[in-house]
Simulated scan of single mutants.
Amino acid sequence: MNSFLKYLNQMVPLSEAVQEAISEITIRRVIPGNTLFFQNGDVCKEFHFLENGLARVFYHKDGKEVTAWFASEGQIVSAIDSLFTGQPSFYNIQMTEDSVIWSLQFNKIEPVFQKYPVVERLGRLLITQNYLLLDERMKLFAFCSAEERYEKLLIQIPDITQRVKLGHIASYLGISQEHLSRIRAGLRHGHA
Rank of each mutant, 00 (worst) to 15 (best):
R149N: 09
A146G: 09
F49H: 00
R137E: 12
Y172T: 08
L166Q: 13
P32A: 14
Y150H: 12
S181F: 06
Q177H: 06
Q105E: 11
I169L: 07
I157L: 11
Q129T: 00
A71M: 01
I27T: 15
A146Y: 00
I76M: 03
S72V: 02
N9H: 08
N92H: 05
V66N: 13
E97V: 01
N130Q: 14
T96H: 07
A170H: 03
F70N: 01
A55P: 08
N52Y: 06
F84K: 14
G190T: 10
Q39E: 14
G86A: 01
P32H: 10
M95T: 09
K139I: 15
A21L: 07
P111W: 02
L50M: 06
I183N: 00
T85P: 10
E65F: 05
F70K: 05
Q19N: 14
F143S: 13
H179D: 06
G167Y: 00
F113C: 00
V119A: 01
H168E: 07
W69E: 12
F90M: 09
E110K: 14
W69Y: 12
W69I: 08
N40V: 06
S171K: 07
F58H: 05
N92F: 06
V12Y: 04
E136A: 15
F4P: 12
I157E: 03
A17P: 02
A71G: 13
M138C: 15
Y7W: 00
R163E: 09
I22Q: 11
Y59D: 04
S171V: 04
L83C: 05
L122N: 10
